[in-house]
């Protein structure tokens, strides 16, 4: 799919998600459509409970929407005619995840956390080790490669998590509040990293964030409110 790169890395159409039923029914997504190009860095804003995580879970093939379509790299990944995909295999090859905290497996060292993603994808041990070290070097945490996650600072942990998300050269990276646990300076550094990853690796990156101070780094901005999505100009951000 890399040969004939489609115009849109991610396309969603009419995404709707309803949790529960009857009294406990919650409509988390209402008719959400979004298009993201390769190399595009997207910020997804919105108040708590507005449906941002639910949206990422639908795009990331973690939690299927109630209705609507998701296309990744031009392929319909939900139950369209071309679906025929195992979500797990698809995630492994095409999607990288970074979330708020505890991204790392505590019983593996930093470099092993990256290597496991490569091992799961069938990479040989030798090639995996080399690529993992390259990635840690790229993200500037190579000197902490053999440390346990608990011995890393929050910023270093997120760098390792980004390295793991990049391991299998995904076309899509989804990040859910990756800087929430960091102070603003380190938060900006990590956001800068996503920008670098999107522009240098050609991945479409969606980052859910509450951090308005780093919004200038993003190419596109969306706001979610009560399950509805709209594109905003960064200048319309609240103070």
């Amino acid at each position: 799919m890399n040969s004939a790169r489609p115009a849109w890395a991610i396309e969603t159409e009419g995404l709707t998600k309803v949790y529960g039923s009857g009294n406990t029914e919650v409509v988390a997504l209402r008719d959400v459509g979004m298009r993201v190009r390769p190399s595009e860095l997207v910020a997804l804003l919105g108040p708590s409970g507005s449906g941002k995580s639910t949206f990422l879970a639908a795009v990331g093939l973690i939690n299927a929407p109630t209705s609507g379509r998701v296309r990744i790299g031009g392929r319909d990944v939900l139950d369209g005619p071309k679906a025929l995909i195992d979500p797990r295999t698809f995630r492994r090859r095409h999607i990288g995840f970074v979330f708020q905290k505890s991204n790392l497996i505590p019983f593996l060292s930093a470099v092993e956390n990256v290597r496991i993603a490569l091992q799961i994808n069938g990479e040989s041990a030798r090639a995996g080790r080399r690529r993992a070290m390259e990635l840690l070097d790229y993200l500037d945490v190579a000197d902490r490669a053999d440390h346990d996650p608990t011995m890393l600072s929050g910023g270093q942990q997120q760098r390792v998590a980004v390295a793991r998300a990049l391991a299998n050269r995904p076309s899509v990276i989804l990040a859910d509040e990756p800087t929430a646990a960091l102070d603003s300076r380190r938060g900006r550094q990590v956001m800068d990293l996503f920008r670098k990853v999107a522009h240098e690796q050609g991945a479409a990156v969606i980052v859910v964030t509450h951090d308005h101070r780093s919004l200038d780094l993003f190419d596109t901005h969306y706001e979610m409110e009560d399950g509805r999505l709209r594109e905003i100009a960064p200048s319309t951000e609240p103070a």
Partner: peptide, 9 residues
């Protein structure tokens, strides 16, 4: 859960 998320069988 992390292993499953990153695609472990």
């Amino acid at each position: 859960a992390i292993l499953k998320l990153i695609g472990a069988s």
